[in-house]
Simulated scan of single mutants.
Amino acid sequence: MANRKTAAERQQAELYAEIREEGFFKSSIRSLSSFKEAGDFAQSGPRAGQPGGMLYSNLGYYLYNHQSPDGARSWEKELHAELGKKLIWPTSARSSHAK
């Protein structure tokens, strides 16, 4: 019979997975150099409910709204701002015709 993980072991494994994903996310986001790369990266990550999923969701929110979501951690907001300084933000056709 296979050994089953206890609730504490599952929780610890999820925490370690989150920490690993945060490290990958931090190093990867710093290497992005275009809006397209950033969008592709945001889409490539884990989904909400999976370890690291909120990082990618928050990045997608930032790219769409040009501001970090309220729930983003301070280090995420710093990474978003750092990335935002490097990107050439697309303009919509509608905003280019605004008076």
Rank of each mutant, 00 (worst) to 15 (best):
G45W: 04
A38F: 08
A38G: 15
S33P: 02
E37D: 09
P51G: 08
R47D: 04
Q43N: 15
N65E: 06
E37N: 09
L63F: 07
L63P: 00
F41S: 09
Y61I: 05
S44D: 01
N58F: 00
L55I: 06
F41A: 01
N65G: 01
S68K: 06
N65W: 15
Q43H: 03
N65M: 12
K36T: 13
S68N: 10
G71W: 06
S44H: 02
Y62H: 05
A72I: 02
D40K: 14
G71M: 12
D70L: 15
S33D: 12
A38I: 14
P69Q: 03
K36E: 14
L55M: 07
G52L: 04
P46L: 06
G71V: 12
Y62F: 13
G52R: 03
G39S: 04
G53K: 04
H66P: 05
Y61D: 06
R47L: 13
Q43W: 03
H66I: 10
S44E: 01
P69I: 15
G53P: 10
P69K: 14
N65Q: 14
N65I: 08
S68W: 08
G39A: 04
P51S: 07
E37T: 10
S34P: 01
G49S: 07
P46K: 00
L63N: 03
G52A: 05
Y61E: 01
R47N: 11
S57H: 08
S57D: 05
S34Y: 07
Y61F: 15
A48Q: 14
G39N: 08
N65C: 10
N65V: 09
Y61V: 02
A72D: 00
L59T: 08
Y64E: 08
